[in-house]
Design a protein around this nucleic acid. Structure first.
Length: 858
DNA sequence: GCAAGGTC
């Protein structure tokens, strides 16, 4: 019997497909990958009985990157990136997808590809095939092995139909995606590296650690700057309006009329009309028109609409909205949140969805009413064939969902869903037209007839605050006031996130799944800030960049660029051009654009010059340079660094860290003055040499390390001198005595990612690390000199040497702490204290201190 | 350290 391996794009889809094809009778087991399961069932494949295994990947299995040596920013000229060799690597190594697929493919004869039916999905087909084909069973298998299922929705009908008409994967579409990946990588990285190095090497207050460029993020920024420019160049114009108030009868309040000419920009003409109107005492009701109007119920919800509403009405940004939607989806509260489709599948079970929601506190009674009167047929939307619209999958309470914002999003999704099944809202629009002399005026108002869907979306309801007076045609109303008022046109406001999303969607910048990332990106890079009303105000940096592109090569920030490139690449998908030719052509064009940009970067720099402060004038003197002995300046704006204006060198410093001088002590290797870094009063602190931090002196010292990772054998600040034991919570770290922590002595893990801190004794003058290791656990002993009056030792002794973990006196005095609470805490039990022992992991503990500690780095 | 595209 043959085994058929079927692979979907995500775990949820594998589950749905297996459920449909097995008629709800499959067995599910965990896969080698933590994210994916395998659903198995017996069935028929092309007339023969077969064993089916349905599983999935998690999106792309592979991604593209430059070969190792090209990732060195110092040594590689960015222009090389247009031809540097690239390779494919695992997109998410933690998930172990390739190994998992390999294992499942080994006993399979046939593979059926159920990836999403778009270009990216087609590309993933070939990623899967690359892994699966070499290991699949080949014996007595001369027939076809690879099949592609084509489906446009996840319904019984569609899935069965796809299974009965399997096709072939489309290599051209896959190659089109590969071309896009390659181009995005080369162009994005080349520009980003060049800009970052160029501008960071000149200015001290850009306040962004990365001056990135990208074919999606840059046009996104472009939209925000375009609006900024409109605001800046806006010239207010003066106009004149007639303000008229009339009264229906003596016992009624006055009401305002709107002039049919709205406003005039010529004062003389306006005065002319004013005089004509002023001649009259009465306004005569010329006509009263009422018209029944309809406010349509919304279409089924897709991702961009959800993002728009969340931003504009719930005040939740796109990134957070997507995270919330993800969480609601994985917990089973809503359907798949990334979809462009606004049309419900034909067989959508509205009735059972409604039944589920009938128990909701906020909407239960509305749902019951919908069920009783019969729900309306939803409006026709567009079916892109990706996923059904976003709908609630089960009823939930605020307590169940937990997070307040997630709850608000869920509540909105429920209400939107119910609204799509509700009647349209009907209201009466009334317009009363008045004549004053020959001039026409009017007043309008709306009154609801049938609230329809606005009952469940109250924020959409008809505004009936403006009640109209009760008048008949021909009625003469007393004019209480006529005035000519001078007003000025106002500038537009900054772009809202919601408007930006609309613009991105319109120009094809990003996809439903990536729009939120691009918007988030331009914020992270300090190109825009979110101001009140979730409007995006570009920063000086963002403005200078876009204006600079405009001066050098306007294409670079133009929203039309992305679609123009995609149009070219699409020729590959359509089979009209060779992948190699198109890619080569596109790369060449962008390389030329890049070279032109580099040659003309001064035009952009002229803009930067007037706004930003040169490095030489930035920052405050902090510590001495080891080369020239002059003070270097500490630049605190991102990226934090030291700048030596004499040598014109910069030295990066750790981010989000307080940096101070430390006793004017110097590094014995390079004479740079040492700094003490700390991450707040609860955090770790350690010494750092600015030069070694950027240029590690020893092979086993990583870039970005402090003295607590330095293997200098003689320096009194090095790991070699102050290291005590392997970290008790992480794999690679070493607990090092923190010489700056006195008098609240601490040991801290020297791994940047680990936050373990061991607080020692408060009442010691001096602590040093002994050459001798503990016999029990092999940690180095501490030589402690306590204060005379506060010593915990008997007989007023002040000196004691022993192992911090095993010595009975010491071990009672220490405490384990996590520098940050975000890091998962491992229990530190009495038994756990001895964990230092396991540092040899069966190996003999070497005698020499240096090599002992070095051994833990292997 | 870089892009954009999938998805957990």
């Amino acid at each position: 019997m043959k085994t058929v391996l079927m692979v979907a794009e995500k775990p949820s889809l594998a589950a749905s497909i297996a459920k449909i094809l097995s008629r709800n009778s499959c067995n599910t087991r965990k896969g080698l990958s933590s994210a994916c399961s395998v659903h198995e069932y017996p069935g028929d494949f092309q007339g023969q009985s077969a064993h089916f295994k349905v599983t999935s990947v998690c999106g792309h299995v592979m991604c593209i990157d430059f070969e190792g040596k090209y990732n060195n920013w110092e040594k590689v000229d960015p222009s090389e990136l247009f031809h540097a060799p690239t390779f494919k690597k695992e997109a998410n190594p933690k998930l172990n997808i390739p190994k998992f697929l390999e294992k499942e493919a080994k006993d399979s004869d046939i593979v059926v590809l159920w990836l999403d039916c778009d270009k990216e999905g087609e590309n993933i087909c070939f990623e899967v095939l690359d892994i699966v084909m070499p290991v699949m069973k080949r014996q007595n298998n001369k027939g076809r092995v690879v099949y592609r299922a084509q489906f446009s929705s996840i319904t019984d009908k569609d899935i069965h139909a796809a299974m009965n008409s399997l096709g072939e994967p489309n290599e051209n579409e896959s190659l089109c995606v590969e071309a896009r990946q390659e181009l995005d990588l080369r162009v994005g990285c080349a520009f980003t590296r060049f800009q970052t190095k160029y501008f960071q090497g000149k200015y001290g207050n850009l306040d962004s650690s990365l001056i990135s460029y990208g074919p999606c993020q840059t046009p996104t920024l472009g939209f925000c700057v375009e609006r900024h420019d409109k605001i800046q160049s806006f010239k207010p114009e003066t106009y004149w309006q007639l303000d008229v108030e009339v009264k229906g009868s003596n016992d009624e309040p006055t009401f305002n009329l709107n002039w049919s000419r709205v406003r005039l920009f010529d004062q003389q003409v306006a005065i002319h009309y004013l005089n004509k109107v002023k001649d009259n005492k009465l306004a005569i009701v010329q006509s009263i028109k009422t018209k029944e109007k309809v406010k349509q119920r919304p279409q089924a919800l897709n991702t961009v609409e959800m993002l728009r509403v969340a931003s504009s009405s719930l005040n939740i940004g796109p990134q957070q909205t997507m995270q919330a939607a993800e969480s609601l989806y994985t917990r089973g509260y809503i359907s798949y949140p990334r979809t462009e489709t606004t049309h419900y599948p034909e067989n959508f079970e509205f009735r059972s969805s409604l039944n589920q929601l009938a128990s909701g506190n906020l909407w239960g009674s509305y749902v019951k009413k919908l069920i009783d009167i019969g729900y309306s047929k939803p409006r026709k939307g567009t079916d892109v064939g990706d996923h059904p619209p976003i709908t609630p999958m089960r009823n939930a309470t605020e307590q169940e969902i937990g997070s307040f914002d997630n709850w608000r999003l869920y509540e909105y999704i429920v209400r939107h869903f119910l609204a799509t099944l509700s009647p349209d809202c009907k209201y009466l629009h009334k317009e009363i037209v008045f004549l004053i002399g020959e001039e026409k005026f009017s007043c309008t108002g709306n009154s609801p007839l049938e609230p329809g869907f606005t009952e469940i979306m109250p924020w959409m309801s008809i505004d009936d605050s403006q009640t109209l007076p009760n008048l008949q045609e021909g009625k003469k109303c007393a004019i209480e006031k006529v005035a000519l008022v001078e007003r000025k046109t106002g500038p537009p406001d900054y772009l809202t996130e919601s408007e930006l999303i609309t613009l991105m969607e319109k120009h094809g910048i990003g996809t439903d799944a990536s729009i939120s990332t691009h918007i988030n990106n331009i914020g992270q890079r300090n190109y825009v800030t979110v101001v009140s009303g979730r409007r995006l105000q570009p920063t000086n940096l963002g403005i200078m960049l876009v204006h600079g592109y405009k001066k050098i090569d306007a294409d670079l920030a133009l929203p039309t660029m992305r679609s123009a490139v995609e149009k070219q690449l699409n020729l590959i998908a359509l089979g009209k051009a060779e992948h190699k030719d198109v890619t080569k052509h596109a790369v060449t064009i962008f390389q030329q654009k890049f070279l032109f940009f580099v040659q003309n970067v001064l035009s952009m720099d002229r803009l930067f010059e007037v706004t930003f402060t040169p490095l030489s004038q930035s920052g405050k003197p902090l510590s001495r340079c080891g080369k020239c002995r002059r003070y270097m300046k500490h630049i605190t704006a991102a990226p934090p660094r030291l700048y030596c204006s004499t040598c014109d060198d910069t030295y990066d410093l750790p981010a989000k860290t307080n940096v101070k001088m430390y006793k004017e002590l110097k590094c014995p290797l390079d004479d740079f003055e040492l700094l003490v870094c700390s991450t707040g009063s609860q955090g770790k602190s350690y010494l750092l040499c600015p030069y070694c931090y950027n240029h590690p002196p020893f092979r086993d010292m990583r870039k970005g390390s402090g003295c607590n990772s330095c293997t200098h054998p003689g320096c009194i600040h090095s790991r070699s001198t102050l290291g005590v034991s392997p970290c008790i919570s992480c794999e690679n770290g070493i607990l090092v005595l923190d010489p700056t922590s006195a008098p609240k002595w601490k040991l801290a893990c020297n791994d940047n990612r680990c936050s373990t801190v061991v607080t020692l004794f408060q009442d010691a003058h001096r602590i040093s690390v002994s050459e001798d290791a503990c016999e029990k656990c092999a940690a180095y002993e501490l030589i402690v000199d306590f204060h005379k009056e506060k010593t915990p030792l008997e007989k007023n002794e002040t000196k004691h040497t022993g192992c911090v973990f095993c010595d009975p006196i010491f071990s009672g005095l220490i405490k384990l702490k996590q520098a940050r609470l975000t890091v998962k805490r491992k229990p530190f039990s009495t038994r756990g204290r001895g964990r230092g022992r396991s540092r040899g992991r069966g190996k003999r503990v070497p005698k020499d201190k240096m090599s002992q500690l070095a051994a833990y780095f292997v």
